[in-house]
Every structure is written in C-alpha cells, then in structure tokens.
Amino acid sequence: MASRRQFFKDALAATAAVSLAAADGSGSAREKEKPALFQFSLPRVMGTRLEFLAVGTPDAIVRPVWDAFYAELMELDAMLNRFNGYGEVARLNAAPSQEDVPVSEPLAALLRLAFSYRERTGGLFDVAGGKPVTLSADNRLTLGGATLDFGGFAKGYALRLWRDRLRAAGIGCAFTDFGGSSILATGHHPYGDCWKVGVTNPYGGGPVDEWSLRDTSLSTSGNAPSYHGHIVHPRTGLPAEGRRLVSVCAPDPLDAEVLSTALMLAAPSEENALASAFPEAVFRRYSL
C-alpha cells in the first residue's frame, strides 16, 4: 500500500487544488461587498477534469469540505479505474475469473447500486456490459468472464457524494463542472435565479441549447469527433452511432449520469419506461 499512498501523494502534488481566491484586503467598500470566490480545479481525475466554483462561502469553510471530498474522490477513482493496474476493478478485469471472488465492501455497495440502475433502465445501463454478473449476499462476485466498466456511473456517483457534502456544510451557492459532461448546480448564480449552461456542439459551431439549472444536475452523453462509439449497447454490443447528444437534468447527479447513457441507447419504445422509472428527470436530444 505504500506505493499507492505515494501515488496519491504524487497525484496530490501534481494536481494541487488551485485556489484563485481573492481575499480582497485593499479594495473599495463596494468591492468588499462582492461575494468571496473560490475556484478549485483538478486537471486529471476519472479521465477528465473537475472544476468547482463556490460563491459567498469563506475559504475556511469550503476548503476542509473540498479536502475531504478530494480524498474520497481519489479513493473512488483508484478503485474504479480500469487502467491503473492496481485498483480493485483493474485487478478484477485483468483476471476475470469464472469462479466467484470476494470483493471489498465499498465495491460491493457500488455494484449493488449499479445493478439497481440496471433494473431501473431495463438493462440499458449495465456496468457488466450485459453479462450475467452476480453478487452474493456475502460480497462474492461472479464475473463469468465479464469485465466491469463504471464509465457513465463514476462521475455521477462522485457528484452525488459531493452534493451531499456541500449540503451538509451549508454551502448553498456553487457550480461544479466534471468534464463538461456532468454538472452540479448548487443554488443559483449570485446575480441570477439559476445557473445558465450552454450545451456545446463538439463538432464545432455555437451552443446548441441552454439549460437553466437550480439545485439540480445536468449530464450530457454523446459522440464527439475525437471520441466516438464509446457508448455500447449492453444487449447488442453495438455502439451508439450518429452525431447526436442527450442531456438529462435530474436532482440526483447519478440519475442524470446513468440516464444520459441509457437514452443514447434507448429505442423510442423504451423511452416511456425510462421516463416512468425516473419521474424527476427531464431530457433533451440533440442531432448535430
């Protein structure tokens, strides 16, 4: 474990959360009325970038919340990352046993959560890629040759944890952008009644839509010129084709994350079932 700790330490040094906070000691009285601003940024986590802006909460309150979340996020990333070579999922995938193998309690809990989404989406979202993977009550996993992929789940789950931490700390005005595809809008913009977010066209050109978010989350899935065919249908094994996006707005970031993937794969006949399973979610499709 020493090497893994060292890895975290290095990662922490390399991605040291940057605070652009401006404790304004010399400004005019009017400037001093402006809310405190804190921006944190992690350039590399879960294969993308995480950015966070808190408005109006002092650094002394925000920073410990961020630090705790950062440690949790690193643990989560290490466990779910398929490519790091040492995490639990990476090791399971490297030798997908036909026999049942014990898994850790945290991973077992995530698998149960993921399997619940498999049920709710009628199998459109599946971390096991459509394979009959099972988990026993005593946390023994039977992969049967399958591999696990928490893409389309991990960021949403992390944002759910983050949302809960922000709530618990009473941080009521913040914006979190997880790689553009997962956004958590906490409260509203200090000078508006929501956070306005434009959906960008990865094929170029201006924004294709605008969402007004307030205490909710937005997840966007789709194809991009440099990243195409990565959303694979668990039942058919075929990738979602076409220049299209789906954006899902839902109070729970994990719901939004899972649904945006499922909707990229859903046949028109399956949409009603998804809508019933996630009554709080709103989605829009974009053809580019």
Binding site: L20, A22, K34, P35, L37, Q39, S41, G47, T48, R49, E51, L53, V55, K155, F175, D177, G179, G180, S181, S182, I183, H189, P190, Y191, G192, K196, V197, G198, V199, T200, N201, P202, G206, P207, E210, W211, L218, T220, S221, G222, N223, A224, S226, Y227, L245, S247
Partner: peptide, 24 residues
C-alpha cells in the same frame, strides 16, 4: 469555467458554454 469565474467576479449573469460529451 473561467468565463463563469469572471462573470461572477464582475457581477454578470450569463450562460457559460460547457455542457457536452465528457472532456478527455
């Protein structure tokens, strides 16, 4: 995100173009 930071700092409320397929 920078734009958002600048907007909030300058007291401006506007849309920020950020949502899309995951940045890699």
């Amino acid at each position: 995100m920078r734009r958002l930071y600048d907007q909030v700092r300058d007291g401006i409320f506007a849309s920020i173009p950020t949502a899309g397929p995951s940045w890699r």
